[in-house]
Design a protein around this nucleic acid. Structure first.
Lengths: 210, 210
DNA sequence: CGGCATCCTCTTTGATACTG
DNA sequence: CAGTATCAAAGAGGATGCCG
């Protein structure tokens, strides 16, 4: 991208991460940590492979990410954010907060990956019952499932299935999101197609109070 | 801009404000309130007029800004953010915080407008002596001067010259920014070309404590 | 297979000129 | 003042090819 040529912090930031796909690449790396090229690509449905390569080159040059060869059994290069790149998390979080209302509509033909829920969940879910026994929640909605664990007052995430989840949810992204964030009644979500196994009450332990 | 087609709040946000110039247009409107087309353009050095017109159309359609005819003596249409558009302030602020280190270098051929300091100043400056008498600071560095007033514990801004500023600063954007934010010694800034009239001590009343 | 590079088409941008 | 019109250059998207 061409520089804006303005002595302004926001313009300078956009010089580095303002072009198409750049911030979504950062999103993927924030959520899923070090990734192989091909795995990164799967979290960015719609990107052209040449464009991804081009962006990675740019983001590496500006110190936002780094590529490093990982020895066997990985035996390939992994892409990861630098410390500076990770500082973009608050930008992405604010952007997501602002964009959240736009998810109110079904968005039927949109691509979806379960792990995209991790970033909002990380900021918005809290363990409301710190003294209770640990509970595990599994979200199945698209691509890899997402495991969420609440224990001792904090919440943790992992991409992949949980061992013995206390509750497993599956359904459309829209339903899942509404139920997780407490914006939609569990019962009404079930009527609209949400499926679950386990104890729905553990949702209340995680949902934001507001 | 083409939609990313992803069911993700960040991607949806970027669908609306992710294309070139959009966030800088929002920056201008946040800082300078309702503006005429031509005045808006002056705060966006480098934008092509057809592109500005195109962006305004898009941002109006998505409910981020609004155009309204103002009766004489203005007798033209004014462009302003909607409430939804104003909510982008936190996004821009985080972006600016992230981008701030990029202003450490002179950036010699960059364009600059004094009012661009208003947004960081609004968030970072505080009145450290709420009980003191009101003081006024005038910043002259490019385009219109910026007036900053500290009184009764809060800080206010206005584009344009101050009546009787207790301190007026002029110099390069880099020096100005460093001195304002307390990252550069006043004396050393003066050696590098910062000019002032009035009482430099009032700076300490505003500078961030960190 | 993983990690790109090439080629081609289509869209977006940038620069400038012009108009009601 | 507030744009539209025009046109060249850059960038994005899609398919495919190449090489360890």
């Amino acid at each position: 991208m061409r520089s804006y040529g303005q002595f302004c912090a926001m313009a300078k930031a956009l010089d580095l991460v303002g072009d198409r796909w750049s911030l979504l690449i950062v999103r993927e790396l924030l959520i899923r940590g070090p990734l192989r090229y091909t795995d990164l690509r799967q979290g960015l449905p719609g990107i052209a492979t040449n464009l991804l390569a081009q962006r990675l080159e740019g983001l590496e040059k500006t110190g936002i990410l780094r590529r490093e060869y990982a020895p066997p059994p990985i035996a390939t290069t992994l892409i990861d954010l630098t410390a500076r790149g990770k500082e973009l998390e608050s930008v992405l979080f604010e952007l997501g907060k602002w964009g959240a209302p736009l998810l109110a509509k079904p968005g039927n033909h949109d691509a979806f990956c379960g792990h995209w829920l991790a970033l909002p969940a990380k900021h918005l879910l809290h363990d409301q019952t710190p003294d209770g026994p640990p509970v595990t929640l599994e979200i199945r909605s698209g691509g890899e499932p997402l495991s969420i664990e609440a224990a001792g007052g904090s919440v943790h995430f992992r991409i992949g299935p949980a061992k013995n989840p206390d509750l497993a949810l599956s359904g459309t992204p829209l339903l899942m999101l509404g139920v997780l964030m407490g914006k939609r009644e569990f019962a009404s979500a079930c009527k609209e197609g949400l499926k679950y196994e386990g104890d729905p009450n553990i949702l209340r332990r995680l949902q934001p109070t507001a």
